[in-house]
Simulated scan of single mutants.
Amino acid sequence: MTANKSPSYRHQVFELPEPKLDITEYQLFHGRCKQCNTVSKGALPEEAPDGQMGPRLLSYVAVLSGLYHLSVRKIQRLLQDQYGTHFSIGLISEAQGRVSSMLTPTHQALHQHIKKASLVHVDET
């Protein structure tokens, strides 16, 4: 008996990956010089994001609120259920504001471009 060169049947199973947060902890130290009594403090690396949420989590919160219209409390609950981590209402609200501020220049540029366009809302009909 000879085996076929291509499969006669395919069975695909789709599964979501295990949700987990990647947490990066930055530890900063400080010390005092015994000679001159000057305090030196460590600094975060330049690539460290401001705040507790990294860019992907910020984007996820923005999509949940902007595209899926979830309230701050529902976003809080979803993040708790998915990742087992509690984020405060204030932090989620702050994340929405940060993303909104980041998108404002793009939104304004698009608005100006559309205002100057000779044709607006044109389709094939």
Rank of each mutant, 00 (worst) to 15 (best):
R77C: 01
Y60P: 14
E18A: 15
C36F: 03
I23G: 03
G90Q: 10
A95K: 09
I75A: 01
D22F: 05
M53K: 12
Q35R: 14
F87E: 00
E47T: 14
V61P: 13
G51A: 04
E47S: 13
V63K: 11
H86A: 12
H69C: 07
E18W: 13
I89Q: 11
E94K: 15
L21Q: 08
E94C: 07
D50T: 07
F29R: 12
N37E: 11
Y26T: 03
Q35Y: 07
L79Q: 02
S65G: 12
R56I: 02
L79E: 02
R73W: 07
Q76G: 00
N37I: 04
L58W: 04
Y60Q: 15
T24Q: 13
G66K: 13
Q35C: 07
G54F: 06
C33A: 09
E46C: 12
G54E: 07
K20I: 00
Q76F: 00
Q80Y: 09
S93H: 08
L91S: 15
Y60H: 15
P19E: 01
Q35F: 09
E18K: 15
G84C: 05
I89E: 09
C36V: 01
F87V: 02
L67T: 05
P17I: 09
T24M: 13
S88G: 13
K41H: 08
Q76W: 00
D81N: 14
S40Q: 12
K34R: 08
V39C: 02
Y68K: 11
H69P: 00
K74Y: 04
I92T: 02
N37P: 02
G90D: 06
S71C: 08
S59V: 09
A43N: 14
E47G: 05
